[in-house]
Amino acid sequence: MATPDFITALRADAGQQLLWLPGITAIVFDDEGRVLLGRRSDNGKWSVIGGIPDPGEQPAECAVREVFEETAVRCVVERVVLVQALKPVTYPNGDTCQFMDITLRCRAVGGEARVNDDESLEVAWFDVDALPRLHEFSAYRIKQALSDEPTWFEPAVVE
């Protein structure tokens, strides 16, 4: 996965210390109710589409851009599915970060699903009852995007 230039610049000053970063996940459905997935080039596993917004970029703009960059599919954002602070992650090079994920439900409006950059090995549409093996992160977001529930978030602990 390509590291955005602004994060590379931050790392020059911050070193490997924890960075708090925004993350956008796009759950894209087509008119047949299938979900769009990519098989990641970094680990070979199927996953939902996502990325990091550029400075000043709105979450919906990021979702539309990332989906097109990775899959050549054009989409529109329909609603916010969930907002969640994820657990910190340490990458093999020692860099640490923690993402605030905003997951958006999207609808495909054009394009043919295909590998469109070096972040995916494969791109495909899947029936929601015939998904490949997915990490819980992806499976949960698809489940939430299919529900009619309001936006999910971790409730605050009141003392």
Rank of each mutant, 00 (worst) to 15 (best):
V83W: 06
R107G: 05
R39A: 02
W20N: 10
E154H: 09
G111C: 06
A113W: 09
L36S: 04
T8Q: 15
L36W: 10
K143H: 14
D118S: 12
E57Y: 03
V128D: 04
G94R: 06
A130K: 13
P59C: 07
I7P: 04
H135G: 10
L131K: 03
V89G: 00
S47P: 00
D42V: 15
F68R: 12
P59E: 07
A85N: 13
A63L: 03
Y140H: 12
L36I: 09
N116P: 00
A108S: 14
A130S: 14
F126D: 08
P155S: 13
R141T: 02
P4N: 07
D127A: 15
V80P: 00
N43G: 01
E159S: 08
A145C: 09
E159T: 08
L82I: 03
F126M: 07
L121F: 01
A60E: 13
S147D: 11
T151D: 05
E159W: 09
V123E: 04
V35M: 09
E136L: 14
L131D: 06
G23K: 10
R107Q: 14
R39N: 05
S120K: 13
D129V: 03
I27D: 03
R11K: 12
C62I: 02
R65N: 02
D54M: 12
D42R: 10
G33H: 09
R114T: 10
A2H: 10
G44K: 02
L121A: 02
S147V: 03
V157D: 11
Q98C: 11
P92G: 08
Y140G: 11
G38W: 01
L121E: 13
T25A: 14
E154K: 13
A156H: 10
E61Q: 11
L36A: 07
Q98L: 03
P155K: 14
V83R: 15
C106Q: 05
V28Q: 07
A130Y: 01
D127H: 12
S138H: 01
R11F: 04
R65M: 02
R65Q: 02
E136F: 12
Y140L: 15
V83P: 00
R34V: 03
N43D: 15
G15C: 05
E119F: 02
I24F: 05
Q58T: 10
A145G: 07
T3N: 09
M1F: 05
V83Y: 07
